[in-house]
Nucleic acid binder design. Structure first.
Length: 585
RNA sequence: CGGGCUGUGGCGCAGCUUGGUUAGCGCGUCGGUCUGGGGGACCGAAGGUCGCGGGUUCGAGUCCCGCCAGCCCGACCA
């Protein structure tokens, strides 16, 4: 493609609302343009990248038993009402009405649609398993769209759904999808981890998120650099942390006045101790009863661990209304011995023989030297605290690190939730209808484009991995401007040689972005850096006179010269191709 | 949902406090001259419902009210 013909220009400055590198660079380089909050147009360069990601995904899905389909984006709300998700999705769904007033939504995901389609085919055990996928636009009216393509309201997603006779069969496909995902993200040159995710209300099922490590990510996950254990922060485990405060004898409890000090930090500062010397007591509503979650003051409660530990009871953090309804529960002065608590769940670090500072269950008072067994009882011990940087890895004991990540994929064993609601049954060997067992597998295709730029850029622009770059080579021709007849002749010769090189490379199957614009060298180089093709070839008057073209590796900055044959046409195409793409001297 | 900030040619901004003729600047765009290996210089030009609506005033980009849009922070860890 010649740049004189290409639509989309570069910007020297990014729009004020672009605040992360990938967002700024994709707009500055002319890959995308914003049309509305969280909604973007894909210009020619961006479209090529998006297509490349989609092609990689498609190839791996096809190779793993997937069959591509396309489901409607406009979906009847009636379908969503059958699973109740028209309610649970709530305002996250874009909704609309047809001329008769019937409700529709723009698909935020497609479990209902695919399950309805499969249900209509009257399948038997002989037809299963089936694995269907689509690469299609999804719509979520996010509370706060931000970070450009990372949290957009319109995004391209690959969603696959598999249907099985039982869980064992589902596991086979799940494993296939899992390894296909690894190959896809490897090809995208992303640094990622498959993390054990929170099981959620479905419970017990396997469930993995794929996280691309990135400081701008919106999710935390733990990652052991030693043994590679990785988990979503909510599902993360850790080895029990030994508590250094174990004492042989603990003094008697003692009341201290802490007027107006309702936070851990305030109390700790007032008493000149560390937050870890305090005990944090958090009130929960557990099936209508009051429950306390008890952890060291420097920790945070892992609500999901609590939910799992108390399942199937429902667990809900106390809100303002709850505190109004329980006037004897003093927010900020709760202690683990509160008489109104029917269940006390404590973190294992709150071990016997340790003493703590806690709320005294009285306004403006705390108590010193409170210890388990003597002063309060614990009804359930679990690992209740959210894992933190430096906690020992549950597998190898080495310190865990907490990293931020971008969720780029999620594989999930759904079970029969949707097949039962939408009566997606198969008939078994005995002719009896059974609900199909389902799995679903998502990849954020447009989000990957952004995640890749986050990982592969420098201060000058994007550095595309070869597999995703819109073009293999950025050809910069610098004919110069000259006065003397000799100089003019050389200049014209360089221009001709550039055209020739462009043609020859294209014929050799190399995709080339050819900067044939009449602009200064500085502009061409700056744009080449910004646009980020993996290889830049520079054909200038000086190099041409010496019979060379310069090759620059965008990512490494490595430069070398490639010899031009007297007649460019005579260069063996395969050799040229290798030399240009691989950088052979 | 709460708080804060912003809205002025395609992009980035100034002007608003203290109302006053023709609304400026940089980048970009178009024409020209020069320049030609890291966003070069100069000359000229086009391009604006100052977010929308109402109000105050002789007069509103500027003050007041309402609305819309966008951005940032927070949204129960006691």
């Amino acid at each position: 493609m010649k740049m004189t013909q290409q639509f989309g220009r570069t910007l020297r400055e990014a729009p004020a609302d672009a605040d992360i590198a990938s967002h700024q660079l994709l707009i500055r380089a002319g890959y995308i343009r914003r049309l509305a909050s969280g909604i973007y147009a894909w210009l020619p360069l961006g479209q090529r990248v998006l297509s490349k990601v989609a092609d990689i995904v498609r190839a791996e899905m096809d190779a793993s038993g997937g069959q591509e389909i396309t489901l409607p984006i406009a979906q009847p709300l009636e379908l969503w009402a059958r699973t109740g998700r028209d309610q649970t999705y709530g305002p996250l769904m874009f909704r609309m009405e047809d001329r008769k007033g019937a409700g529709f939504c723009l698909s935020p995901t497609a479990e209902e649609a695919i399950t309805a389609v499969v249900a209509g085919e009257s399948l038997s055990y002989r037809d299963l398993p089936v694995n269907l996928y689509q690469i299609n636009w999804k719509y979520r009216d996010e509370l706060r769209p931000r970070f450009g393509l990372l949290r957009a309201r319109e995004f391209l997603m690959k969603d696959a759904y598999s249907f099985h006779v039982d869980n064992d069969d589902l596991s086979v496909t799940y494993q296939k999808m899992f390894s296909a995902y690894c190959r896809i993200f490897d090809q995208c040159s992303l640094t990622y981890r498959a993390v054990e995710a929170q099981a959620g209300e479905i419970g017990g099922e396997v469930n993995h998120e794929f996280m691309a490590a990135a400081v701008v990510g919106e999710d935390d996950f733990v990652w052991c650099r030693k043994c590679d254990y990785a988990a979503n922060i909510e599902a993360a485990q850790r080895q029990s942390v030994p508590n250094s405060k174990t004492q042989e004898k603990v003094s008697d409890p003692e009341i201290v006045n802490t007027p107006g000090l309702t936070s851990i930090d305030d109390v700790a500062a007032h008493l000149d101790v560390g937050p870890s010397d305090l005990l944090k007591c958090i009130a929960f509503d557990i099936d209508g009863d009051l429950g306390l979650a008890v952890i060291p003051g420097d920790r945070e409660v892992n609500e999901y661990a609590l939910i799992q530990a108390l399942a199937p009871r429902s667990v809900r953090l106390f809100d303002d209304e709850d505190f109004v309804a329980h006037p004897d529960v003093f927010k900020g002065y709760l202690g683990p011995d509160f008489s109104g608590a029917s269940i006390v769940v404590a973190d294992s670090a709150v071990a016997e023989g340790t003493s703590w500072i806690t709320g005294a269950n009285a306004v403006n008072q705390h108590r010193l030297n409170v210890c388990v067994g003597r002063d309060f009882l614990v009804s359930k011990w679990i690992d209740l605290a959210v894992a933190a940087n430096g906690d020992p890895c549950p597998r190898c004991g080495e310190p865990l690190s907490v990293d931020r990540g971008i969720e780029i994929g999620h594989v999930f064993q759904l079970g029969t939730k949707y097949s039962e609601a939408l009566e997606a049954n198969y008939v078994d060997e005995s002719g009896t209808p059974q609900p199909m067992v389902m799995g679903c597998y998502g990849i954020g295709v447009s989000r990957i484009v952004s995640a890749v730029v986050e990982e592969h850029h420098d201060e000058n622009g994007i550095c595309w991995p070869a597999a995703l770059a819109p073009y293999d080579v950025h050809l910069v021709v610098l004919p110069g401007r000259a006065k003397t007849p000799e100089q003019i002749a050389l200049s014209e010769e360089v221009e001709r040689a550039g055209e020739e090189l462009y043609r020859v490379m294209t014929e050799a199957g190399i995709s080339v972005l050819f900067d044939d614009r009449d602009v200064s060298p500085g502009v061409k180089f700056a744009d080449a850096d910004l646009l980020g093709m993996p290889v830049r070839l520079t054909l200038g008057a000086k190099g041409f006179a010496r019979g060379v073209v310069e090759r620059l590796d965008r990512a490494t900055g490595e430069e070398r010269e490639l010899a031009l044959a007297d007649d460019i046409l005579s260069v063996a195409l395969t050799e040229l191709r290798l030399a240009i793409l691989a950088g052979a001297a």
